[in-house]
């Protein structure tokens, strides 16, 4: 029969359950780790992929704090969207690579959540070509939006702006976080090699740098198909 863990191992394993340790972690341990071994904020949005199917149905979670954090500000944001419904539908149709797009407001943040096919930059660029004026209206309601209005004159800047505010997508396989951190720190992947024991710390420090994030890149009910393939299949025209 295998011998169980010794008292010290049991003590350490139990630490995360102990209230005093949780308190200590928040105010001392995590800030201390973050100070001596900081992790850079990882970029948001879907990452480029080798597999073609991974380049379809990609998620954008664009989080934009409202300028006016009051019921009036929220109403103004809602009005911009509702006044432009026709243009938004036209834009979706013309861009041709968008499965879904939703606008929601949470805690005075206007969020645009969408599912699109292909490269992120082209998706945003095509959207601006199609309905740049609608984005100008939206941007007028959010923090730092004035920096990129009019979007048609600031396409590259606007693409970067959106990318900065698109939520980081936590990899589906937790250990992939190591490679992302290595890349962000300009280190060769796995050099020096990572131990599995480091994973909790790597994850906690990353989520300190990226407090808002998406759990995975989204889970798809019919993976590997583009908007146009679905529309073609159903005879909707693409």
């Amino acid at each position: 029969m295998a011998k169980g863990p010794g008292w010290f191992d049991r003590f350490v394993n139990d630490l995360p359950e102990r209230r005093w340790f949780q308190f200590l972690s928040n105010i001392v341990v995590v800030p201390f780790w973050a100070a001596i071994d900081p992790r850079p904020k990882l970029p948001g949005g879907a990452r480029p992929a080798v597999q073609p199917s991974e380049s379809l149905q990609r998620m954008m979670n664009l989080i934009m704090p409202l300028k006016n954090k009051s019921p009036v500000g929220r109403a103004m944001a809602a009005m911009v969207i509702s006044q432009n419904i026709d243009e938004i539908f036209t834009g979706l149709d013309n861009v041709g690579t968008i499965h879904f797009a939703r606008f929601i407001i949470i805690d005075d943040k206007l969020c645009m959540l969408s599912v699109y096919d292909g490269d992120f930059s082209n998706y945003i660029r095509d959207f601006i070509v199609a309905i740049g004026n609608v984005f100008d209206g939206i941007l007028s309601q959010v923090e730092d939006g004035d920096d990129v209005i009019p979007t048609r004159d600031n396409v590259e800047k606007f693409i970067d702006w959106v990318h900065d505010r698109d939520l980081f997508q936590l990899p589906d396989f937790a250990t992939d976080i190591f490679a992302l951190q290595d890349a962000a720190m300009n280190r060769p992947a796995g050099s020096p090699p990572h131990s599995l024991d480091e994973l909790p710390r790597a994850m906690i420090l990353q989520l300190k740098a990226n407090p808002n994030f998406s759990l995975g890149g989204g889970y798809r009910g019919y993976a590997g198909f583009s908007v146009a393939q679905i529309r073609q299949k159903f005879g909707l025209g693409w």
Binding site: P52, S55, D117, G118, S226, A228, R231
Partner: peptide
């Protein structure tokens, strides 16, 4: 990716 036409996407 062949995204330009549904017949070749993927």
């Amino acid at each position: 990716l062949g995204l330009l036409h549904p017949d070749i996407t993927g």
